[in-house]
Amino acid sequence: MSRQSNRTTESKKMNSELFTLTYGALVTQLCKDYENDEEVNKQLDKMGYNIGVRLIEDFLARSSVGRCHDFRETADVIAKVAFKMYLGITPSVTNWSPAGDEFSLILENNPLVDFVELPDNHSNLVYSNILCGVLRGALEMVQMAVDVRFAQDTLRGDNVTEIRMKFVKRIEENLPAGDE
């Protein structure tokens, strides 16, 4: 229990190159094992989901963020608190759909892709797809079903990295979410 009480907003520092290389090693190993980009994307999403469903507890404990009133507030918490806390970046929230159920996170600088250059034979790989899984998993634990995907990616020559997030529905029952 003492561990729980020790959680603060301060985080331990970790070398970003080691982090980036670790993630890179993971992705390339998946590429070797599955030999199919689509399958790798799926695996990354799954892994991310499994991270997300756990990470949300840590996030809530650290951030002491309360219940969000609407999707806009959720977007802000994700961008300004969550991304800041775990990746040290603050993406901007833009491109709201008229219905207010869909928005974009614009990442000027994605720490996962430092050094990375996609070879030509991996044109379908969504390298940072783990982020989608994390967001999906985390939000599912707070009763929000969302659809997350990469709309733009600097790795594929776009100027910025854009994560598009769409609200699907509220999950009414607190279904026990297991590992996918």
Partner: peptide, 9 residues
Amino acid sequence: TDVMCNPFY
């Protein structure tokens, strides 16, 4: 060094 850090290299 950056090239070496590219996981695809």
